[in-house]
Design a binder for these strands. Structure first.
Lengths: 349, 349
DNA sequence: TGTTGGCACTCAATTCTACCGAGTGCCAGC
DNA sequence: GCTGGCACTCGGTAGAATTGAGTGCCAACA
């Protein structure tokens, strides 16, 4: 990875090749058709003929940026070609119409966090015409503000826990004995004393006695600390899954992508994996899921108090409009960050 | 609607026509191809020639049960044809494999109601290879077991209500003043006194004072009684939406159906509408939603203590396997009914 | 050495033709 | 009322011919 000279290092291209590659990619994104040398020669205004472009394309193909569906067709970008494209992309700006759409939305939106995120995913999808994903991170680090045990009936109790991030989680308990009102109230009192201020990560000193109250308390703490309580740890909101049908032509591809989207845990780990790897765009096989090899995914993190609190993402075909998608995703993530991070200032507007 | 004689009333068919119609429908369900007179003549063992079948088919077409894609093609059932078919259907029985699958599932399933219903929808979809819908009815009639106000911070309070059906609902409050711990606790105490035992339908006598506690209490009650609190009133679980891609050929149809499924409120009202009309099957336009005119929907109610507590449904193409679908839906609905209705007996197993 | 116009070549897509065959409608005869 | 027979229709398929976009290569040129 030393000099960059006449023979460019494999990860870099000379100016003309770069221009040609970009022209091919953007035209193919527009038209979904293979791109020929002549249309590149005329659209990109490097003053060369199609023959020259042609020979450059041959070398771009040799280096793996382009591919030919068949001889005597134009070129199509490979995943590597798209990768180069997005890495050298002037980060686009959101259209003013969409900026207003966003501002209006966040200015007027009301209700619970879940509703806001749900609606956000729908909005983002409508703005981009891709499938949108909004992930709200786990509350593992949040502390518990309240833990209450409610007696549904003698054999069923419900532990309702409220976290400092405003999330509420319930856990059913079915102890092997009947529970009367007093026992439940006492257990609830003890749970409150035990749990308030702790987080899910901190260990809790449970009573070791064998009386009903103690058993209840132990069961409750165990349920709370058990792995995914209800699948509420990470919450996913998927908007515009019907867009998948437009984005891909093969029925089989559509089915595969949809069935991935159904598995929300998988979507979460995909997004989180990208954030961990510091990727904001995953193209084709980069995302690591074979059924999504025809897809590109764009993500942008949402941070609250400096910590990652979630993410927004967009899923489309590899020939997606990256500028627009990235601009939209990052704009939405910023709005979300502001919306949930700086409530105080916002309230004064 | 009087005699049924040589000229059958339009809603009824003579035995031979019925046999022919059934043969056409079931073959078309199997093959997805237009059905010709000769294959009917041989499959259905009425001892007549294809010519006779042909003339009967002409009259079935005139009466609207069959249609021809074009001259010199076989016949395809119309919605009316399918309707006759399901109305005169021997109610199928579930295969023993699937019966076991179901029993095993419900014997081993654990966790919160939401998780069970979610998994049920996935199972039902896998069993039938159609898209499954599970609707859990509103808790409007349930009484409130607990209402607690939790102080997130000075400007944010969370009302957490627990209902007798085990559901938990949260409402954010943002009063126009800072709230300290004592005020919140006192408001919470009053809310408990006020709300416990009431249902969402019953009116509540709120305090008319102007102090902070009273204002908080009023806000909380108002939030609780406001129309759809979080969209948690009816809960919908959709399993196997990717099956839509297999069920229909036109991309456009797939998109339309998916985008209906995205609007969960719409799905709820569709199912509820069918239950109200006493329909267990809606074919084509019968469901009332134009984008779903290529679909058939099968529903079965889930009852607890005699009242409708929800429903399960299946959505497929109009040429869906009605017997299987109806058998699966009703079997699942019965399992759910038993699972949530008669917990006590089940626990003794 | 890089660029270019020219030219032969390739190959998917389109069009046209012919033809097959499944299926129909009709009808005369049983 | 049923049937076998027959002419007819028309979508689907197969093959051949044609088109045209686009390529690779090369000799000539600056």
């Amino acid at each position: 990875m030393a000099r960059r000279a006449t023979h460019p290092a494999s990860s870099d291209l000379d100016a003309r090749k770069a221009t040609i590659l970009e022209a091919v990619v953007s035209e193919h994104i527009d038209t979904a058709q293979p791109v020929g040398s002549s249309s590149v020669a005329s659209s990109a205004d490097l003053g060369v003929s199609s023959a020259t472009v042609r020979s450059e394309m041959v070398s771009l193909e040799r280096e793996g940026y382009l591919a030919q569906p068949h001889t005597s067709a134009g070129r199509v970008p490979t995943d590597k070609g798209y990768r180069y494209f997005v890495d050298h992309l002037a980060s686009g700006v959101l259209g003013t119409v969409q900026q207003h759409q966003l501002s209006d939305f966040f200015a007027s939106v009301r209700g619970e966090v879940e509703d806001v995120l749900e609606q956000t995913s729908t909005l983002l999808s409508r703005m981009t015409s891709y499938t949108a994903v909004v992930v709200a991170a786990t509350h593992a680090h949040s502390s518990i503000l309240s833990a209450q045990l409610v007696n549904i009936d003698a054999r069923h109790q419900l532990l309702v826990s409220v976290f400092s991030d405003g999330s509420v989680v319930k856990h059913s308990l079915t102890p092997p004995f009947d529970v009367d009102f007093e026992t439940c109230t006492e257990a609830s009192r003890q749970l409150n004393a035990l749990l308030i201020g702790t987080s899910l990560e901190s260990a809790v000193q449970v009573p070791s006695r064998q009386d009903h109250v103690a058993v209840l308390v132990r069961e409750a703490v165990a349920a709370l600390h058990a792995a995914p309580p209800t699948a509420d740890g990470e919450r996913v909101f998927i908007g515009g899954s019907s867009r998948v049908a437009d984005s891909f032509d093969g029925v089989e591809t559509v089915r595969k992508v949809l069935s991935i989207l159904e598995q929300e845990l998988l979507v979460v780990s995909l997004v989180q994996d990208m954030l961990n790897r510091g990727l904001s765009v995953a193209i084709g096989t980069e995302n690591g899921y074979e059924p999504l090899s025809a897809c590109a995914v764009v993500v942008a993190p949402v941070t609250i108090d400096g910590a990652t609190a979630g993410a927004v993402g967009l899923l489309g075909p590899t020939r997606m409009k990256y500028q627009e998608a990235m601009a939209a995703a990052s704009a939405v993530s910023q709005h979300l960050t502001r919306h949930f991070g700086g409530d105080e200032e916002n309230a004064n507007h």
